[in-house]
Design a protein around this nucleic acid. Structure first.
Length: 299
DNA sequence: CCTGACCCCTGTGAGC
DNA sequence: TGCTCACAGGGGTCAG
């Protein structure tokens, strides 16, 4: 589910309730998710103070007192739910929230809550992930970037070091499509299916174009588009498809500004008209994932 | 090396 | 109303 803007938003929400606080209780409710939890996770969390947070691609790193960091990935369906300890679970948010509550819902709100921590000042944070594609690990803080899941990540797209030259170099020799290449976290860290589509639309580049044909001016436009769409989404609090909510319970708003994602058949905002592009925004499948694009303005 | 297919898992909406 | 199917924001592994 979450891509860079959503992960950034979740991390900020976690920081607001956790940074500087001590973890007084941890509850590990299953063996693991994508991977087994590290041995002794509960004991290694309890009693430790949270020093701070950072994000690397779609990973959250929570630095703890004692030289260890918690590495968190939200997978497709992961979310963090914060509430006061003892307070009842919040009702489900999202497009179908009220309706599903009225029907009684299919599962209690904290089903699939795999990990819970409580702070000294009475906050309770649950990691909920129905599909369990997410993961949690512990890593020595001094070696965060050498963790096997972080080691191969490409540049941070919002860093100044992510330049057209860097992107072109990463794409050189790649025969695959630019869309598939942007989903490869070794090329650039943090883009997912939505923002890859949105960035290509903004840059006016066809998702079907071969990755190695993006040098020079095209790479410059693409880098600018990636930075712009990610920054705008972060400013909007990320996007809230399905039941994703921010850690503070507020929903993000960026999904209302998708130009192409999920808009098959609709007309593209950039096609001057009439006549607008016939058939409108198209959906194709690349490497098993849906791609949305405008065949007229993306070349 | 690079590439795409397959798999992990549950929930949801569309169509019948 | 209830069933089946396709699909969903990710990414590791494996065969070619």
């Amino acid at each position: 589910m979450p891509e860079l803007p959503e992960v950034e938003t979740v991390m900020r929400g976690l920081s607001a309730v956790l940074a500087g606080r001590r973890i007084v209780r941890a509850e590990v409710r299953r063996e693991g998710m994508r991977f087994p939890f590290p041995p002794g996770l509960k004991e290694r969390l309890e009693g430790r103070r949270v020093l701070g947070f950072r994000r690397r691609g779609k990973y959250i790193l929570m630095r703890l007192e004692g030289g260890e960091s918690v590495l968190i990935h939200l997978g497709m369906s992961g979310r963090m739910v914060a509430r006061r300890a003892g307070a009842p679970p919040a009702p489900r948010f999202g497009p179908q929230g009220a309706a599903s509550d009225a029907r009684g819902g299919t599962a209690p709100p904290d089903a699939h809550e795999h990990l819970v921590i409580e702070t000294e000042d009475g906050m309770r944070i649950g990691f909920v992930d129905p599909r369990r594609f997410g993961c949690v690990d512990l890593v020595p803080t001094a070696e965060e970037d050498r963790h096997r899941l972080l080691r191969g990540l490409g540049p941070e797209p919002l860093d100044d070091s992510f330049t057209p030259e860097v992107l072109s170099a990463a794409l050189a020799g790649r025969r695959t499509s630019i869309k598939a290449a942007l989903l490869d976290q070794r090329v650039v860290a943090g883009l997912g299916n939505i923002y890859a589509c949105e960035a290509l639309f903004r840059a006016g580049i066809s998702p079907r174009r071969a990755a190695h044909t993006i040098p020079g001016e095209r790479a410059a436009r693409l880098v600018s588009a990636i930075k712009a769409v990610l920054e705008e989404s972060i400013r909007a609090g990320g996007s809230s498809l399905r039941d994703y909510v921010r850690a503070d319970g507020e929903i993000g708003a960026f999904q209302e500004r998708f130009a192409v994602y999920g808009r098959e058949g609709q007309r593209c905002e950039r096609c001057p008209g009439p006549p607008r592009c016939r058939g409108g925004i198209r959906r194709i499948v690349q490497a098993g994932r849906s791609t949305f694009y405008c065949p007229l303005t993306q070349r």
